[in-house]
């Protein structure tokens, strides 16, 4: 394996998991776009805030999130995102699979060190 493969792997892992990271951020509360994008960018999950909006559009199109407008005390009204029932089911399914996958990989990685 060369370094480029590792970078590509990270890209693929981000691409595969980022939608569920967004769903996870919405698990317990509604959030607006700026809040979501800043949280994801600050965590390093997305390279720039703007690339999250195509993803949000996909989630809306797929019926996993829905939106509503809220007045804001700072600036214009904001579009808030929240999970739909389908979105919550998708997040639950991914969470279970991810934990299983993560545990399996951790086990192998830990075993490799001992």
């Amino acid at each position: 394996m060369v370094r480029g493969d590792a970078l590509n792997l990270m890209t693929q892992m981000r691409r595969g998991s980022i939608e569920f990271c967004v769903l996870a951020l919405l698990r317990d509360e509604e959030r607006y776009g700026l809040d979501l994008s800043r949280t994801l960018a600050d965590s390093g999950i997305v390279s720039s805030e703007g690339t999250m909006y195509p993803l949000l559009a996909r989630l809306r199109q797929g019926g996993l999130v829905e939106t509503s407008w809220h007045e804001s005390t700072q600036g214009p009204p904001r579009r808030y995102y929240r999970l739909t029932a389908d979105g919550r089911a998708a997040l639950d399914a991914f969470t279970a699979q991810w934990q299983q996958f993560r545990d399996a990989v951790d086990s192998l990685l830990d075993g490799g060190r001992t």
Binding site: G33, Y53, A57, G75, P76
Partner: peptide
């Protein structure tokens, strides 16, 4: 439709960030 959705979202992002 998809183009408009992304444009609206980004425009809102800019407006919200400027509002702060």
């Amino acid at each position: 439709g998809r183009r408009g959705q992304i444009l609206d979202d980004v425009a809102e992002h800019v407006a919200a960030a400027r509002g702060a």
